[in-house]
Design a binder for these strands. Structure first.
Ligand code: MN
Ligand code: MN
Ligand code: ZN
Ligand code: ZN
Lengths: 126, 126
DNA sequence: ATTTTATTGCGACAAAGTTGCAATATTACA
DNA sequence: TGTAATATTGCAACTTTGTCGCAATAAAAT
């Protein structure tokens, strides 16, 4: 499963990097120059996630958002995204907050994925 | 918009109370004795949320889960559910953990809804 | 240049949730 | 108790989100 470099891949990555936020499939489709199929976008994004370049958050609206990994260990196995995300109910932006959050779970519980989202009004909209 | 007491309402509430966990629409439908329409279940649950009897969590699988409000102020306006939820990747249960979590947001941000989910393996499954 | 196979586009599909509308059941009230 | 007002339900239709199979395309290796 070697990865190949394609126009779609690079453009999506540029869009994510330029934005700095977590973007939904739709947001990405809007910001991409060339028309790109929905399935393709999802496949590219999921591949990025596998490769540890990108991480995914599911909003309290049920939608998936994808953001570039910032401080992640390059080791794809254990990049823990235990930081908070903020989704603005007004403008729709989803930001990765700096806040890393370590939650002590009860005995016997094993954490695999953190999906922490607070929604409200962002700095610009409040 | 006065509420009326119906069989569906009470049965759903019983199921939620008996479970103690956060249940998806499907889980509720399975545990209810009488056949009940999907739309009806959602409508009942959403009404419960409006009334402050129940709160909703969206899992990292994009699905909605509903749980009885435990320590909520009866004042429907401001019941803050800033506690963590744990979803087991094995058995599928979603629990409300006791952990109340107050996150200091950056200046200018206003929090409205907390949707905090950690998924992994629960006590029984790990 | 040719082969190999990762990637794409398209269509079909499934699942989750919502909504409109007519039928039904609950509550209020005469 | 009987009737009117309206909240609730069931059903079907629909939207949205995301996935998958398959044939066509394009990147990399030879
Ligand atoms: Mn993030
Ligand atoms: Mn809860
Ligand atoms: Zn905003
Ligand atoms: Zn479990």
């Amino acid at each position: 499963m070697k990865r190949r470099s394609t126009a779609s891949k690079e453009e999506i990555l540029e869009v994510l990097a330029a934005s700095g936020n977590a973007l939904s499939h739709e947001m990405i489709q809007d910001r991409v120059s060339s028309a790109m199929d929905r399935a393709t976008i999802y496949r590219v994004l999921n591949r990025f996630c596998e490769d540890g370049k990108v991480h995914k958050v599911v909003g309290d609206n049920g939608k998936q958002y994808f953001a570039m990994c910032a401080n992640c260990d390059e080791k794809k196995q254990l990049h823990s995204h235990n930081h908070i995300h903020f989704r603005c109910l007004q403008c729709g932006t989803v930001e990765c907050l700096k806040q890393a959050l370590s939650v002590p779970l009860p005995e016997g519980y094993v954490a695999k994925v953190h999906n922490l989202v607070i929604s409200g009004f962002c700095k610009a909209c409040s």
